[in-house]
């Protein structure tokens, strides 16, 4: 269902030319597509440009990865995925990429990142977000990751969310 993607954020930020018209399209669609028969035409009309241009630009943004995907963004809580555990791992620095990729390949992991340690309080350098219907399911999945890492696991913990304090989409201005 998904292929692992390996990217380095510092590289990609310089490589993607987005012009003013793209930004206007982004600003007009980031809250969602209009739920009408011809949504791209509706956006075009709103922005005063041709529908073909809106579609061409959106296709190009899909190809270049500016748009990750188009579709439904489910509220995982509403779908019964009540437990959301941020598992964090301390693995040897020289094996982070190799092990991070292996963790990311697991079906139960939604996001997996290498992040800096903040010693002495925070020894963890790999973050893997694990979702489950309850904590038992999350714990089971965390055990799977621990088994996968074996000796490379120099310590881990799971942080559960207890409250959503704020949740808004990313806002991109035109």
């Amino acid at each position: 269902m998904h292929a692992a993607q390996i990217k380095t954020s510092s590289v990609e930020s310089d490589t993607m030319p987005i012009d003013t018209t793209d930004r206007r399209i982004i600003a007009a669609t980031q809250a969602g597509l209009p739920l009408v028969t011809r949504p791209y035409h509706a956006i075009a009309e709103q922005l005063g440009i041709e529908p073909q241009e809106v579609m061409q630009r959106m296709n190009r943004m899909c190809e270049s990865g500016v748009i990750r995907r188009i579709g439904a963004v489910p509220n995982h809580y509403a779908l019964g995925y009540q437990a959301n555990g941020m598992s964090v791992w301390n693995v040897p620095d020289d094996r982070v990429s190799e092990l991070g990729r292996k963790i990311g390949d697991l079906d139960c992991v939604s996001h997996c990142y290498h992040r800096p340690r903040h010693l002495p309080d925070w020894p963890y350098n790999v973050f893997a977000m694990v979702h489950g219907r309850d904590r038992a399911e999350v714990e089971q999945k965390v055990k799977q990751i621990a088994e996968l890492l074996g000796d490379a696991n120099q310590g881990h913990t799971v942080l559960y969310s207890t409250r959503i304090l704020k949740k808004t989409g990313l806002r991109i201005s035109a």
Binding site: S13, T15, I26, G32, L33, I67, A72
Partner: peptide, 13 residues
Amino acid sequence: LTRFGPMYHAERL
């Protein structure tokens, strides 16, 4: 659903 539409890649913008 929280949204229906394109998901943008912030760093690429």
